[in-house]
Design a protein around this nucleic acid. Structure first.
Lengths: 195, 195
DNA sequence: AAATTCACTTGCCAAATGGCAAGAAATCAA
DNA sequence: TTGATTTCTTGCCATTTGGCAAGTGAATTT
């Protein structure tokens, strides 16, 4: 079982600290290789989130608003840690679903194991904090753009900064992610073609 | 110098762990009592965020969008930790400002000191993670509401869940926080009075 | 207390976005 | 390959929200 991609990712995401051989081994043991077929769920609403390092594939998080409409809250591309912080760290049932959009490969673990690593491997603790902070920062930037930008600007921004999303995700999912209807987004696309 | 409110807050926010006397002392030493007069800045854009436990008062975070409009990104009520996670944890200049809306009292410290505490006091490490997770969760819920809710619903939601914000904040700041113009919000208020 | 500034409201109209339903296109299943 | 299902687009019109500028009222300064 080759966990090198996982080790490399962790190593690359801690500044100034070389992960010791021992730590590498301890970490490796706690993760298991896992695949998700297209449309399989990494996380279902009501369950507690796990921790998944996505080596290859594309995932989508979504929930439902008051009127029962599906709302896409996030897209995950490869070389990212995929988890729902609220559920994972608070051990609470998730309100979100996370689903494989394409075939997904990576390494999976649970809160208990992550917690063990947090207590026993300082390097991993740093790594965990960095992942959390990174999620937060990314999320904040994304949402700041939502405020005080028009639907068209939001669409253009996503096109420029996250082109790979358009490669994998359905347009209606991108639309709800951007806080607009698929109808509106379709019109925006039409307008932008003209230019 | 009485740091009991700080200790109590930390104690109350770690599950299942009693903070030792020694830890209490170590933590206390790292924080200094601090006051912010009305309109004073806890954080200015371009500076690196500190860490402030707000014992009493009300604060507001804001930044500017592409067109130069001020956008309120957050309100902080008492008994909360006030900091900008992106800047604080990544040691990067903040894009946000945090300003005292009323006279504010609390305990202040820097990244280096928090880091020292993270490494030397496990209880504080847990506390720090909980604060970060809590910020993230709160932020996520807030922004989820922004998507797929009308301006009127967003206003009503905030009224129901965070009434104290209306006690202290200016209406135009609440409006930009809710992602609408002050003009629109004024009209919404008028409509809601009728009911 | 008067002058000045700032926050908020309101009327008028324009622009952006949504809702619905029908049709076209793409995808999936047999 | 064909039929069925799903996704995406489009036309028509309604609704929501914004922009501007004037007006009111409250707070602050001198």
């Amino acid at each position: 079982m080759n966990k090198q991609p996982l080790i490399n990712f962790i190593q690359n995401n801690i500044q100034n600290i070389k992960v010791s051989e021992e730590a590498v081994l301890t970490i490796s043991e706690m993760f298991e290789e896992r695949e998700f077929a297209k449309n399989d769920f990494l996380l279902k609403a009501g369950k507690v989130s796990g921790y998944f390092f996505l080596v290859d594939g594309f995932m989508r998080a979504f929930t439902f608003d008051n009127e029962g409409n599906e709302v896409t809250t996030y897209f995950y591309t490869k070389n990212r840690v995929v988890f729902e912080p609220a559920s994972f760290f608070m051990h609470q049932p998730s309100t979100e679903n996370i689903q494989a959009v394409t075939l997904c490969k990576g390494y999976y673990t649970t809160f208990d194991k992550v917690n063990t690593l947090f207590h026993s491997v300082p390097e991993f603790r740093e790594f965990g904090r960095l992942m959390l902070v990174r999620e937060f920062v990314a999320y904040k930037q994304q949402t700041l753009a939502m405020i005080n930008k028009s639907a068209e600007e939001r669409y253009a921004d996503l096109m420029n900064t996250n082109k790979e999303i358009f490669q994998y995700a359905q347009l209606k999912h991108i639309a709800s992610f951007l806080g607009m209807t698929d109808t509106s987004m379709s019109r925006i696309r039409k307008e932008m073609l003209k230019k």
